[in-house]
Write a protein that binds this DNA or RNA. Structure first.
Lengths: 191, 191
DNA sequence: GTCTATATACCGATAGAC
DNA sequence: GTCTATCGGTATATAGAC
C-alpha cells in the first residue's frame, strides 16, 4: 500500500488488487511492473514465477485474515457479535470499489491454478470454516442461534453467502453485497 | 452435446464447459478447436470474436434457465417446492465434476469482460433475482416462509448462497456444495 | 465450411550488463 | 536490485485457397 514499502511488498499489493479485480488469468507481470513503476524482469527478481507470487499473496492474505479473526475473538465475547464482525470483514473488502475476496476469486478459478496456489486457497477456506463452525457452536450453546442445523453446515452457509454476494453483486451490478446478505442471514438465524 | 449437432452448437457446448472449469480468461479458441476436432479459424467462422462466442453462450444459458424456471412454475404450485426445485438446478450443474454456474464464473471476472458479455451476465442475475423474489413473496403470503425480510433480500441471499457454495466447494475441495447449502438455508426459512 | 499460412500482440521466463 | 534484450510459446484475429 505504502509508497515507502519495499518493492516486494508493493508488487504483492498491486498483484492482490489485480487478482481481486480480474482474477489469476486476468493480469500479467507486465501489468504489475507498470503499476509499481519498474520493469518486468524486476518483478521476476522478487518472485521467480507467477505461481510463486500468487501463492505468497494468498498466504499473506490468509495470515491477515487469521489476525483479524483473532482480534474479533479478543474484542467480542458474544458469539453473535463475533459473527456480525465477521460479516464486516467481507463488507469492507467489497466496499473498495467492488473488490472480490482474493480466495473467492481464486476459488472460482481453482481448476486453472498451479497446485501451490490452489493449496493456499484451500487453506484460507479451511481457516474460515473452522472459525465459523466454532462461532456457531458457541452461539447455539448459549441459545443465541436456535437453528438445529449442524455448526459446520451453518459455517458453510455463511461463508458461501458472503463469497456469493460479492460475485452476484458484481455480476448483477446491483444488490447490497455481502453487508446486506450477511445481515439478512444473521437476522434469520440469530436472536 | 450431441455428436450430430451443428458445428456452431458443438463450439458453444465446448466453450461453455471450458468457462465453467477455467473462466473467460482460462480458455482459448485453440482449446475449443481441438475439443471440437476442427482448426482455430473454423471457430472464428462461426463466432467472429471471443466476445461474440461468450455473449452468445451466456444468452443461451440464460434462455435455458428461463425455460427451467417456467417449467418449475408449471410443475409446482407450492412456493417452497418451487424453491427446492430451484436449488436442484444449481446442484445438478455442480454435480457435473464441480462445474460452476456459467454466469457465476463470469460474474466474478466481470471487470475483465467485454461489455456485451457483462451485460448478458447481468441479465442472467436479473432473471434469477426476479423469479426468486416472486417465489419468496408467494411463500410469505401463504405463510410457508415466516421471515420478515423483504422478498428481494431473501432472493439475493438465496442466489448468493448457491453461487457462493460452488466457489467455496471448489476452493476448499470440501463441503456439500449448493445442494447442502440450499437445503440448510431453506431449512431455516421455510416450514 | 474448413483449411494453411500468417499478422500482430502478448505471455511467462531467462541471460547478462550495470 | 534494476535494467535492456531476447527466447519460445501462445493469444486473438485475418487473408485467401479449396
Amino acid at each position: 500500500m505504502s509508497a515507502v514499502a519495499g518493492t516486494a511488498t508493493r508488487v504483492m499489493d498491486v498483484a492482490e488488487a489485480l487478482i481481486q479485480q480480474r482474477g489469476y488469468g486476468g493480469f500479467s507481470f507486465d501489468d504489475v511492473a507498470q503499476a509499481v513503476g519498474i520493469r518486468k524482469p524486476s518483478v521476476h527478481h522478487h518472485f521467480r514465477t507467477k505461481a510463486d507470487l500468487v501463492a505468497a499473496l494468498a498466504h499473506r492474505y490468509t495470515g491477515r485474515f487469521e489476525s483479524a479473526l483473532a482480534a474479533i475473538d479478543v474484542a467480542r465475547r458474544d458469539p453473535v457479535a463475533r459473527l456480525k464482525a465477521y460479516v464486516r470483514l467481507f463488507a469492507t473488502t467489497y466496499a473498495q470499489d467492488g473488490r472480490l475476496c482474493v480466495c473467492g476469486m481464486l476459488g472460482a478459478e481453482a481448476d486453472a491454478l498451479p497446485t501451490d496456489v490452489a493449496d493456499a486457497v484451500a487453506g484460507f477456506f479451511r481457516l474460515n470454516l473452522d472459525w465459523l463452525t466454532a462461532a456457531f457452536r458457541d452461539a447455539q450453546q448459549c441459545g443465541r442461534v436456535t437453528s438445529d442445523q449442524r455448526p459446520a453446515a451453518l459455517a458453510e452457509l455463511m461463508l458461501s453467502a458472503l463469497e456469493g454476494a460479492m460475485v452476484v453483486g458484481r455480476g448483477s451490478r446491483s444488490g447490497g453485497g455481502p453487508e446486506a446478505v450477511g445481515k439478512s442471514l444473521l437476522a434469520g438465524l440469530a436472536r
